[in-house]
């Protein structure tokens, strides 16, 4: 393998951090959009709290991307759904409360596992940002685990089914190019394939062996390795996440 040049490495890091940041933007909007489905006051507080933290992660990552040559306003003001790089897992809205918790759990854990590959990044501000994101994500996952316990105790089978149905899309997000440039250059601690295996094991472990497996792999059709997704974000989702025009008021 040839030594990757600096431009290619910079682009690879930019792509991966933008995929993470955009996915967090969509996840934060899932929290705000679904908050009225909370089952109790603690749910409302949790969903809005997790939304605040997750929007914060997006903003911090966008600001970091400025160091890599991105324009902050340009990132915020992207006007086309095709310009966004969010994970396919979050394209389809939740079908019910169990699907909501399952999807949020898969998304939070996927984003953390992916991000954890940068805990040892040679740029210490990035490593520190990732660690802070992890400390906050810990409590988001704890919230999901609280609901998982309730589903287990009440014999709720819908949750496991929702999780199994969503898992292939979550696993697809880790898909690596033939050469993981960042890992080869010491900028990612572990190969994406290893991160993906750890992720899958953790998810299946969370079900306590009650899983029916994780189904067939997600389709490769239209996969864009730069944006880490297949196809374009649905228009309906784009209308939720995009910044609104000046003077526009949602009713």
């Amino acid at each position: 393998m040839t030594t990757p040049d600096k431009d290619a490495l910079g682009e690879a890091l930019r792509n991966d951090l933008l995929a993470l940041a955009d996915s967090k933007l969509v996840l934060a909007n899932w929290y705000t959009t679904c908050v009225h489905n909370g089952r109790s006051l603690p749910d409302f507080a949790a969903l809005l709290g997790m939304a605040t933290a997750t929007f914060g992660h997006t903003r911090a990552l966008y600001l970091y991307l400025v160091n890599l040559g991105c324009d902050y306003d340009g990132l915020e003001r992207r006007a086309q759904p095709a310009a966004f790089c969010s994970m396919n897992l979050l394209d389809r809205p939740p079908e019910d409360w169990e699907d909501f918790i399952a999807t949020v759990y898969l998304a939070e854990l996927a984003m953390w596992t992916f991000a954890s590959g940068f805990l040892g990044h040679p740029d210490r501000p990035l490593a520190g940002l990732i660690r802070k994101i992890g400390e906050e994500s810990y409590f988001h996952l704890k919230y999901c685990q609280g609901w998982q316990s309730i589903f287990t105790e009440t014999g709720n089978r819908r949750y496991g089914a929702a999780l199994a149905a969503r898992l292939p899309a979550a696993l697809a997000w880790f898909r690596a190019q033939e050469d993981d440039l960042l890992q080869a250059a010491g900028q990612r601690d572990l190969p994406l394939s290893t991160l993906c295996q750890s992720y899958r094991a953790e998810v299946l472990n969370s079900l306590g062996g009650a899983s029916a497996g994780d189904g067939p792999p997600a389709s490769l059709d239209g996969w864009d390795p730069q944006r880490r997704r297949a196809g374009t974000m649905p228009q309906r989702l784009f209308e939720i996440i995009r910044l609104k025009d000046p003077g526009a008021v949602l009713r």
Partner: peptide, 29 residues
């Protein structure tokens, strides 16, 4: 947010202790 079972006070506690979610192991991180 906690509630005390003895005096019934409700109080808030700052949560960060540096704990991370499950993280794939890297030997010399």
């Amino acid at each position: 947010m906690f509630r005390c079972g003895q005096c019934r006070t409700v109080f808030n506690w700052v949560k960060w202790r540096g704990t991370l979610p499950p993280t794939p192991t890297v030997p010399d991180r």
